[in-house]
Design a protein around this nucleic acid. Sequence first.
DNA 1: CTGAAAGCGCTTACAG
DNA 2: CTGAAAGCGCTTACAG
Lengths: 348, 348
Amino acid sequence: MATINDIAKYAGISIATVSRALNKPELVNADTRERVMQAAKKLNYFTNDKARQFNLKTKKLSLGVIIPYITSFYFGELYSGISRVAHENNIDLLLYELKSDNMAREGLTEAFSFAQRHLVDGVILASSHMPSEYDDLIEQLQMPVVLLLDAHESAKLPAFKVDDIRASFDAVAYLVSRGHRRIGMISALQTQRQERGEQLRLRGYKQAVDFYKLPYSHSFVVYGDMRFDDGYSAMKQLLAERDETGLTAVFAASDEMAIGAMRCIHDAGLRVPDDISVIGYDNLSVSNITTPKLTTIEQPFGQIGAEGARHIVKLLTEGEQLPEKGNFYMPYKIIERESVAENSASDK
Amino acid sequence: MATINDIAKYAGISIATVSRALNKPELVNADTRERVMQAAKKLNYFTNDKARQFNLKTKKLSLGVIIPYITSFYFGELYSGISRVAHENNIDLLLYELKSDNMAREGLTEAFSFAQRHLVDGVILASSHMPSEYDDLIEQLQMPVVLLLDAHESAKLPAFKVDDIRASFDAVAYLVSRGHRRIGMISALQTQRQERGEQLRLRGYKQAVDFYKLPYSHSFVVYGDMRFDDGYSAMKQLLAERDETGLTAVFAASDEMAIGAMRCIHDAGLRVPDDISVIGYDNLSVSNITTPKLTTIEQPFGQIGAEGARHIVKLLTEGEQLPEKGNFYMPYKIIERESVAENSASDK
DNA sequence: CTGAAAGCGCTTACAG
DNA sequence: CTGAAAGCGCTTACAG
């Protein structure tokens, strides 16, 4: 590919002038400038950004976006939010897919190494729980890191997310407002030592149970790994204990599980929402095309991505004294659709 | 950040040796090697790939992945396929999201410029119809380009995709095998001058109509823009003309439209598949969680991504004399689920 | 307004 | 086994 040297030769001038003509046209005589442009076009020249990066002064900002679950339903929205802000600020995005979900030290190390090798200026880490034991890796990274969707164990990094506890409380409160009192929950697995955002949702549910003095026993809560199939089998359990619990509504910690639960209810010959109401958590784009359409708590993925990106950009460009840690709670809302009905059961 | 110079100073040796210790350890004395490693660790050194790229001999291969619709349901699968192959071959992936769907000249130019600026070695262009009028851009790119999911207008570039005509023919044939004869189609919009892959599906439908001598009038075909809502309103039209057509089954050119159609049928008080059977096209992951689960033609997105990547890698590394143009048809199959029933209508 | 030269971080042929 | 030096493509302070 043509270099600035080729242009210089072709136009019969020095490379210094070529560089100037290309980057600071106003510093160059109109004639020469024109000659350079002609040559550049003729030779099909493209500026070599990698080379340019060496001159720290002209280095273009870039951000590493590290994310597991690139196949998840929300990835697109999240990325689009980040991408919009990056574009506005003329920043390159380098995507890195975390190979394993488990956030093993090894995976994270590899991802960070990718970021460093590519001379990225900051890192956006999405949807990955950050235990304190990785603090040394973050330290070594030597650049700002922002978390999306999940928080740092001890809030040592800025995290943009929904307040899971409050949002879950509200989900249950909504069900209560529609006349339900016997409310089950399909929660995230409790395997991890730390409490992930997803697990906070159970806390919100329990607070609501206490607050509204709802009937409760351990048969009201069942666990799954956030996906469709998990929701299905979790619901199966819930249904099996229904004689005891008298369930009229269910809160699922993810839309996928909620959709799985709806399907299970359907297969059991019951109907949503007539027999059992279901509310989810996420507002995935899928949730608007199920039958019935899912009522759910919206996580504003696009906005979360955008705000996270904006924050790191500020950190990088304005040198502003922004808080470098703590959780930034983004607004959630209840999307009312068709999966929750007014409860008319006798024990109302 | 620490450079190889810092290490050299710290360890009291030349940068040449440091470089060797890092890249070709076997060429270096065990002692010195050890000293270098210690220093590297101590100084938290990361190799600067950008700099390394200059030495053409050590340049790491990288591929640009250009894709519109990063929010589409199939993006994740497609990208994962590409990513797997890239990873196996130690190749970097640089993702670029085409801002507008319309494949305007401007958007493509920007994407290609991104690819050139980042010194990418080849480009994978997904899901974007390639009219011949852009041949000059491809020409200027001066690197291999592979198309995914859609073809070049005059087959001047290798394209990895499903044979839309045959697959669609088979979709209709499947319906016929289940006793249906009055079969409608929800097709892609016919706005473009060129025939996109999506539009080829209508050709397949028509061939099947001819082959099986199925009843047909223009009321059997209706058009939509591939999304859920389009499927919904298209189905509405089809339902409106049902007195005339006597429809018992529908073939939709995309799963999203099929799911929209199912919803429309449901809202009209009819049932899938009991009253009307529906078959889709794509096999999105969503299609397995609808109620009823969608019977559909599978496009092997992961495999398409992987094969496309593999092809370009071969082009790049083995210098093999591969065909640089033409369509490579990937295997599709019919995924039988719940949305198609045996037809027992009187006019069978 | 323009050119010669140094430097960005790294690799490797060439000597030793 | 190791070092001095050239070169990858580009930018910019310094002279002129």
